[in-house]
């Protein structure tokens, strides 16, 4: 990963979508998924992130994990911008059925309907779901 040159990857660029569907601390999927996104962000692909179902809980504000003795990784989502991952979508239906709104989230996102998310999925080369 430690390229001396600040050169860019010049292979074919594919559209990658990472779909986050799990709550953050009950299983390891959310954290592992985030690490995969950060690692692959180095390859200059066209990456987008989608939060659906319990995945929206990953980016809930005000997480405080001292009491359960686990690492609070919610601040790391704010680093995604620096990794050039800027297309972040949340499914409206998932957010609303959990009683949340955009103001409850740690990062700015674009809210899309289920139909819009399906369209977006159709347009991808690779979809990876955690």
């Amino acid at each position: 990963m430690e390229d001396f040159e600040d050169n860019e990857f010049d292979g074919p660029i594919k559209k990658f979508m990472y779909v986050n569907r799990k709550a953050p601390y009950g299983t390891v999927y959310a954290l592992e998924g985030l690490e995969v996104v950060l690692i692959t962000a180095a390859f200059d692909q066209d990456v987008c992130l989608v939060f659906v179902d319990d995945g929206v809980f990953q980016i809930k504000k005000d997480q405080e994990t001292t009491g359960i003795n686990m690492k609070n990784f919610s601040p790391t989502y704010r680093a995604l911008e620096g990794y050039d991952v800027e297309k972040i979508y949340v499914e409206k239906e998932s957010l609303e059925s959990r009683g949340f709104s955009e103001d409850d989230l740690v990062i700015p996102v674009e809210i899309l309907s289920s139909a819009e998310i399906s369209e977006l999925m159709d347009a991808q080369d690779v979809i990876v779901t955690f």
């Binding site: 390229d3 180095a42 790391t76 680093a79």
Partner: peptide, 11 residues
């Protein structure tokens, strides 16, 4: 402190 990760060199 802010992001809870060590950044990749590019970042």
């Amino acid at each position: 402190e802010e992001y809870q990760i060590a950044p990749a060199v590019r970042v």
